Simulated scan of single mutants.
Amino acid sequence: MVGFGFLAVQAKNENNEQAFWIYVVFALLFQPFFKIALGKEVWNIVDVIVGVGLLVSLKKNE
């Protein structure tokens, strides 16, 4: 959650509204306070998609 919050602030500072809202949604989705029951299979898919998205984002910012 803290990592996505940091990325959201960084995106906001760069005036990248789309990335800002994506990181805010990820921060809320992966927050540790309230359990979001999506099922194990769905969570596995979400984890893979988010991981690939983060790698693409990292590569894009090089």
Rank of each mutant, 00 (worst) to 15 (best):
I45E: 07
G5Y: 06
K40H: 09
G3H: 11
V48W: 14
I45T: 12
F33C: 08
L54K: 01
V50D: 08
N13S: 10
A37K: 15
I22T: 10
G53P: 04
G53D: 04
V46S: 08
G53L: 04
F4G: 01
M1I: 05
I22Y: 03
E17A: 13
Q18M: 10
G51V: 05
E17P: 02
F20E: 09
F20Q: 06
F33H: 11
N13Q: 13
L58D: 01
M1T: 11
A37W: 10
I22D: 03
F20A: 01
S57Y: 06
F20L: 03
E62R: 12
A37D: 15
G3R: 11
I36W: 12
L54N: 04
W43E: 01
E17L: 11
A19E: 02
A37L: 12
F6Q: 11
W21T: 01
E14L: 08
V2H: 12
D47Q: 11
Q31L: 09
N15M: 09
P32D: 08
K60N: 09
E62M: 11
F4D: 03
V56N: 00
L58N: 02
L28K: 04
G39P: 09
W21R: 04
A27C: 06
F20H: 08
K35A: 14
P32Y: 04
W21Q: 03
K59Y: 06
L38Y: 07
V56K: 02
V2L: 13
F30A: 07
M1H: 12
G39R: 07
V25K: 14
A27F: 07
F6H: 09
V46W: 10
L55W: 05
L29K: 05
A11D: 04
N16T: 01
Q10R: 15
